[in-house]
Design a protein around this nucleic acid. Structure first.
Lengths: 195, 195
DNA sequence: GCATTTGCCTATAAGCTATAGGCAAATGCA
DNA sequence: TGCATTTGCCTATAGCTTATAGGCAAATGC
């Protein structure tokens, strides 16, 4: 009776959990389901994860990390509306390709964990693309929040199927929205010499 | 041994469920918790609700209804930016006053239920507001989606505490955002004679 | 005043999280 | 190479959840 170990680790479990989330939804990610996936008993996972909260937190951190990487990649070398579009598309594309991970990225983290997460990179990158619009504080903060709301709101509603009822393609509305945002932000630029 | 009946009904259970959601979060609303609240055994609830999905669906419908009522009330007799602001504020205020119900309003409904819900009133009211901006199709649809995204995104991020880290008041960013949206929409008005 | 319906009950099963304790494989070290 | 320790996964168990089946008494109908 040769017993081969499954080779579990927090990292492997997290990755498998993220895949599971994309397949069945983040709220359906359970330790039991994960254990089944590794053909292992559910209690065995507790040797690698403190509890299911830790699993979810790790998946959330993974998603934030991946999303920040993609956005960083997309905006590199771009500025102005070009950067805005690249950021927004990277964001939306990730949410569509990885719905479970995207949900996970909204999992509520305790303050210290959040502070150490890639969430701060998101805020930094948003501020970076706003450099092309010459916004002074506190307008810049307002704009960060507005953009975050639009991107998250759109991704979230689209994932929920809210745009499925009407015959207009979600892609067109997205492009239109980005255009709109660009205009709005430019109209708020401060140091433009002649109004 | 006088046994007094608890007087359960789908309506009372739904309302209590909504209150419970606001107190502990929509995902913490369970039939067991609800039964405890009525000092009744959990299995008894199945006489009034098919299952927990029905409870959640009913809470979602209640929330959509309430939200639509408030918005309708707020926008009545207003037009243009005034209407936009009233709509937006009613929306955000509801989300802040009733976080659990607001979460419930995002609960995924099956298509027929959604079609019969107050969700359609939301879309109608959004279109009504946009009448003040003279947008032709498909721009109107784009605008409906953009506004929905901003409102939902903002409420959702604010509820998640995403705006707590920076010292700028969420109210100010909200006002700024609405201003921005108004400008953006006006710049897209079609039948404005002279460009 | 009796029959029917209704409302809540107990009992039970299955799935989830979590803890405790056991045993064998893997590893460390002389 | 051989023994002690550590590690990895196991079983067993308890408490929580949803959900179903069947029972009995209160409420209602006639």
């Amino acid at each position: 009776m040769v017993v081969v170990r499954a080779g579990l680790s927090p990292e492997r479990l997290t990755l498998a959990g993220a895949e599971l989330a994309d397949e069945v939804g983040f709220d359906q990610v359970t330790l039991s389901a994960l254990a089944r996936r590794f053909d292992v008993k559910q209690a065995s996972l507790y040797a690698h994860l403190k509890n299911s909260h830790e699993l979810k937190t790790r998946i959330a951190l993974l998603a934030l990390e991946e999303l920040a990487d993609r956005v960083a990649d997309a905006v590199a070398g771009r500025a102005g509306k070009d950067a805005l579009t690249a950021f927004a598309n990277a964001y939306r594309d990730y949410a569509r390709a990885h719905p479970g991970r995207y949900e996970a990225a909204r999992y509520r983290l305790d303050p210290e964990t959040a502070a150490a997460s890639a969430g701060v990179r998101h805020a930094q990158m948003t501020r970076a693309i706003l450099r092309g619009y010459d916004l002074a504080e506190p307008d810049q903060t307002h704009a960060v929040r507005m953009l975050g709301s639009v991107f998250h709101g759109y991704a979230s509603l689209e994932a929920a199927g809210a745009f499925d009822h009407t015959d207009v393609a979600a892609q067109q509305s997205w492009d239109w929205t980005l255009d709109c945002l660009d205009t709005a932000l430019r109209s708020r630029s401060t140091p433009r010499p002649a109004a």
